[in-house]
């Protein structure tokens, strides 16, 4: 075990192998969208994630919280195999989406990433027009047969991202001319355009001002009707506001995973309590 852990309670109470929200009998919670078992992740020789097991449910918002460097972003990126592009990265254990192991040999990574959309910490629009940004994924994946269909899907995605009314008259303008908050919503629209069923969001509002953040949060709330959303955040208020379930990561391990209200009001772990009450982090 890790010798450098200062708090002895950790060693005594290791997390249960498979964490799962215990309370709440909503039907959707019987379904499992993402099922991760004993997943470890290595950069070269360094182990960044240690034996993570978690079941994520469809049409809920799951938040990953924890201090920086705790592995929450790394874990998020194992769910669409984004870490594959890092040289020397290696995964052990299994991660299933809809029952299919995404790390099985022969898995179509490109198809996986289309089904598992991702929004990044800093908005990263392509240096193209607003329209072309949203159309990009549709074009490369050959998802729009005609011009009219393409335009329709672009509009639909922009509406879903609550951006349509702001940009409908300037679709041909450069995406780089938009405000930061708009750019981030554009990136969400871009991710939605290819019709994923899971949306991973890596601190999507951390670079935005409070008003833009609020708009993103409202958007997340709306989107969960149609998508399974996993959101990484270092902002605990945000996690409390937008998420149904919360997972707390610390030093590359999953410490606690439960309903959000439970995590913030009556956590089972001392470490979680210390973190959510602001005693460290």
């Amino acid at each position: 075990m890790t010798g450098q852990i200062a708090n002895p309670s950790i060693r005594l109470k290791a997390p249960t192998p498979t964490a799962r929200p215990t309370e709440g009998a909503a039907n959707r919670e019987r379904d499992v969208k993402i099922d991760v078992e004993h997943l470890s992740f290595f950069y070269g020789a360094k182990r960044a994630l240690e034996d993570i097991s978690v079941k994520i449910h469809p049409n809920v918002v799951t938040a990953f919280i924890g201090p920086s460097g705790c592995g929450k972003s790394t874990f998020l990126r194992t769910l669409n195999r984004m870490n594959d592009i890092i040289p020397g990265a290696r995964v052990e254990g299994t991660a299933r989406i809809d029952g299919n192991d995404i790390y099985a040999p022969g898995v179509d990574v490109v198809g996986l990433r289309r089904r598992v959309g991702m929004v990044f910490q800093k908005s990263n629009p392509f240096p193209k027009s607003i329209f072309e940004n949203v159309a990009y994924g549709l074009r490369i994946n050959g998802m729009a047969g005609s011009k009219a269909e393409l335009a329709g899907r672009v509009e639909e995605s922009l509406r879903q991202a609550a951006l349509w009314d702001e940009v409908k008259d300037r679709l041909q303008e450069s995406a780089l001319a938009m405000s930061g908050g708009q750019q981030q919503r554009l990136c969400i629209a871009r991710a939605l355009a290819v019709r994923p069923d899971i949306l991973l969001m890596d601190e999507p509002a951390s670079a935005l001002d409070p008003i833009a953040t609020q708009r993103i949060e409202e958007l997340v709330y709306d989107l969960k009707k149609a998508y399974t959303i996993v959101i990484v955040t270092h902002n605990m208020q945000q996690a409390a506001r937008v998420s149904d379930h919360t997972a707390f990561f610390w030093l590359g391990r999953l410490i606690e995973y439960d309903r959000t209200d439970k995590i913030f009001t009556a956590p089972a772990e001392k470490l979680t309590e210390d973190y959510v009450t602001g005693r460290f982090g």
């Binding site: 669409n80 984004m82 592009i85 490109v110 198809g111 990433r113 289309r114 959309g117 991702m118 990044f120 800093k122 990263n124 629009p125 392509f126 990009y136 994924g137 490369i140 994946n141 990136c187 871009r190 991710a191 290819v194």
Partner: peptide, 12 residues
């Protein structure tokens, strides 16, 4: 981030 954006949308 530019490459990641493309990869995340299912780019080869």
């Amino acid at each position: 981030a530019q490459r990641e954006a493309a990869y995340a949308l299912g780019a080869t």
